[in-house]
Every structure is written in structure tokens, then in C-alpha cells.
Measured scan of single mutants.
Amino acid sequence: ERLAYIADHLGFSWTELARELDFTEEQIHQIRIENPNSLQDQSHALLKYWLERDGKHATDTNLVECLTKINRMDIVHLME
């Protein structure tokens, strides 16, 4: 799945992406607590919560915009 692929590449950027996707610091902290050992797991959790929260509004376009804002064009190019 594309989101899994994106999550695998996010690394430390997942928190920046979370902020761009309008997650609160508290929500970010919660994701860290729930997935303490792996940045990859934290990234996967973030994208899963985003899909659950935004439903049909959780679009590739939205994700590309946010990834561009945090200067992760490498991931944007991987999505093309």
C-alpha cells in the first residue's frame, strides 16, 4: 500500500507531517507513547489516524501538499 511506503520513508519527519495535517502536540505525544520503539510504527500510526479522521478527505493531493511544505520532495517524487 502507498501509505505504508510513505511511512517507511518518513523517519523523523513524521512529527512535522503530523503538524501539517493538523494533529495536536498531545496527539503526536500519544502516537509516540503507543509506538515507543520505532519511527516507522509512529509514521504508520499517524497515517492510519489521518485516514480514520479525514475519511474521503484524506487525499493524495492533501498529503503531497503537506509533504511539500515540510520539504520532503523525495517522498513526493516516489509517489508519482
Results as ranks from 00 to 15, higher is better:
R2S: 13
R2T: 03
R2G: 04
L3A: 05
L3R: 08
L3P: 04
L3M: 13
A4M: 12
A4G: 14
A4S: 13
A4C: 08
A4E: 12
A4I: 04
Y5R: 02
Y5W: 05
Y5P: 11
Y5V: 07
I6T: 01
A7K: 10
A7P: 02
A7E: 03
A7M: 10
A7T: 14
A7S: 14
A7W: 09
A7L: 12
A7R: 15
D8L: 14
D8R: 14
D8S: 14
D8E: 08
D8N: 03
H9Y: 02
H9C: 13
H9V: 10
H9L: 11
L10P: 00
L10R: 00
L10S: 01
L10M: 04
L10K: 00
L10W: 02
L10I: 10
G11W: 03
G11M: 04
G11T: 05
G11E: 08
G11S: 13
G11D: 09
G11P: 01
F12I: 13
F12Q: 06
F12N: 05
F12A: 14
F12L: 08
F12H: 06
S13R: 08
S13E: 07
S13Y: 03
S13V: 04
S13C: 03
W14N: 02
W14H: 00
W14F: 04
W14I: 00
W14Q: 00
W14A: 01
W14L: 03
W14K: 00
W14M: 02
T15W: 09
T15S: 13
T15M: 04
T15V: 12
T15C: 09
T15L: 14
T15R: 09
E16P: 03
E16R: 13
E16W: 03
E16D: 14
E16A: 10
E16K: 03
L17T: 03
L17A: 05
L17V: 07
L17P: 00
L17I: 11
L17W: 01
L17F: 15
L17C: 10
L17M: 06
A18D: 02
A18M: 01
A18T: 00
A18Y: 00
A18G: 06
R19Y: 02
R19M: 15
R19C: 07
R19K: 15
E20W: 05
E20Y: 07
E20H: 02
E20R: 09
E20T: 11
E20A: 06
L21P: 00
L21E: 00
L21T: 02
L21K: 02
L21V: 04
L21A: 07
L21S: 02
L21G: 08
L21C: 02
L21R: 01
D22C: 05
D22M: 08
D22P: 01
D22L: 09
D22Y: 05
D22F: 10
F23G: 00
F23Y: 03
F23A: 04
F23Q: 00
F23R: 00
F23W: 02
F23H: 01
F23P: 00
F23T: 04
T24L: 05
T24I: 05
T24G: 12
T24C: 04
E25D: 13
E25M: 06
E25Y: 06
E25L: 09
E25W: 08
E26T: 11
E26H: 14
E26Q: 06
E26Y: 06
E26F: 03
E26A: 07
Q27W: 11
Q27H: 15
Q27P: 01
Q27C: 08
Q27G: 05
Q27R: 07
I28L: 09
I28A: 04
I28N: 03
I28P: 00
I28F: 01
H29F: 14
H29P: 00
H29Y: 03
H29W: 05
H29G: 13
H29N: 06
H29S: 10
Q30L: 09
Q30F: 11
Q30G: 08
Q30Y: 04
Q30C: 10
Q30I: 08
I31G: 00
I31F: 13
I31W: 02
I31Y: 02
I31T: 05
I31V: 09
I31Q: 01
I31S: 01
R32Q: 15
R32C: 08
R32F: 07
R32I: 02
R32P: 03
I33E: 14
I33T: 11
I33P: 00
I33L: 07
I33H: 07
I33Y: 11
I33R: 13
I33D: 06
I33M: 13
I33K: 14
E34R: 13
E34Y: 05
E34N: 10
E34D: 06
N35A: 08
N35P: 01
N35S: 07
N35M: 11
N35D: 03
N35W: 10
N35H: 06
N35K: 10
P36H: 04
P36M: 12
P36E: 10
P36T: 09
P36R: 08
P36F: 08
N37K: 08
N37E: 13
N37R: 08
N37Y: 05
N37T: 07
S38L: 07
S38P: 00
S38C: 09
S38N: 09
S38R: 07
S38W: 02
L39N: 07
L39D: 11
L39M: 10
L39P: 12
L39R: 06
L39C: 11
L39T: 05
L39Q: 06
L39I: 15
L39Y: 15
Q40H: 15
Q40F: 02
D41Y: 04
D41Q: 11
D41N: 11
D41P: 03
D41K: 10
D41F: 05
D41C: 06
D41V: 08
Q42C: 13
Q42E: 04
S43L: 04
S43P: 02
S43F: 02
S43G: 07
S43Y: 02
H44R: 04
H44N: 14
H44T: 03
H44A: 14
H44S: 13
H44Q: 09
L46S: 02
L46M: 15
L47P: 00
L47K: 02
L47W: 03
L47G: 02
L47S: 02
K48S: 07
K48Y: 07
K48M: 04
K48F: 09
K48A: 09
K48L: 13
K48R: 13
K48D: 09
Y49V: 15
Y49I: 12
Y49D: 11
Y49R: 06
Y49C: 14
Y49G: 14
Y49H: 07
Y49A: 13
W50G: 03
W50N: 10
W50T: 09
W50L: 13
W50R: 04
W50Q: 12
W50Y: 05
W50D: 01
L51M: 12
L51C: 03
L51H: 10
L51A: 05
L51D: 09
L51W: 06
L51V: 07
E52F: 10
E52L: 13
E52Y: 02
E52V: 13
E52T: 12
R53N: 05
R53G: 06
R53C: 07
R53S: 12
D54N: 11
D54H: 13
D54A: 11
D54S: 07
D54Q: 06
G55I: 07
G55N: 13
G55E: 11
G55K: 07
G55V: 10
G55P: 10
G55W: 06
K56D: 14
K56Q: 08
K56P: 09
K56S: 11
K56T: 12
K56N: 08
K56V: 09
K56H: 13
K56M: 15
H57R: 09
H57V: 12
H57W: 09
H57Y: 10
H57L: 07
A58E: 08
A58I: 03
A58G: 11
A58Y: 13
A58D: 05
A58H: 15
A58R: 08
T59V: 06
T59R: 07
T59M: 06
T59N: 09
T59H: 09
D60I: 06
D60Y: 05
D60V: 06
D60G: 06
D60T: 12
D60K: 07
T61V: 15
T61E: 08
T61K: 03
L63E: 01
L63W: 04
L63A: 06
L63R: 00
L63P: 01
L63M: 13
V64G: 06
V64F: 08
V64E: 15
V64A: 11
E65F: 04
E65C: 05
E65I: 15
E65S: 09
E65V: 07
E65T: 14
C66G: 10
C66Y: 03
C66N: 07
C66Q: 11
C66F: 10
C66W: 09
L67G: 00
L67M: 03
L67T: 00
L67I: 04
T68G: 10
T68P: 07
T68E: 14
T68Q: 06
T68M: 07
T68C: 03
T68S: 05
T68L: 08
T68D: 15
T68N: 03
K69Y: 12
K69I: 06
K69N: 13
K69Q: 12
K69L: 09
K69F: 06
I70M: 12
I70V: 10
I70P: 00
I70R: 01
I70S: 02
I70C: 06
N71Q: 07
N71L: 04
N71R: 11
N71F: 02
N71I: 00
N71C: 09
N71P: 05
R72T: 02
R72E: 00
R72P: 01
R72Q: 05
M73Q: 02
M73R: 13
M73W: 13
M73G: 05
M73D: 15
M73A: 15
M73P: 05
M73Y: 14
D74W: 01
D74E: 05
D74A: 01
D74Y: 00
D74K: 02
I75S: 01
I75F: 02
I75C: 03
I75N: 02
I75T: 03
I75R: 01
I75M: 15
V76Q: 06
V76L: 08
V76F: 07
V76Y: 04
V76N: 03
V76E: 09
H77N: 08
M79K: 03
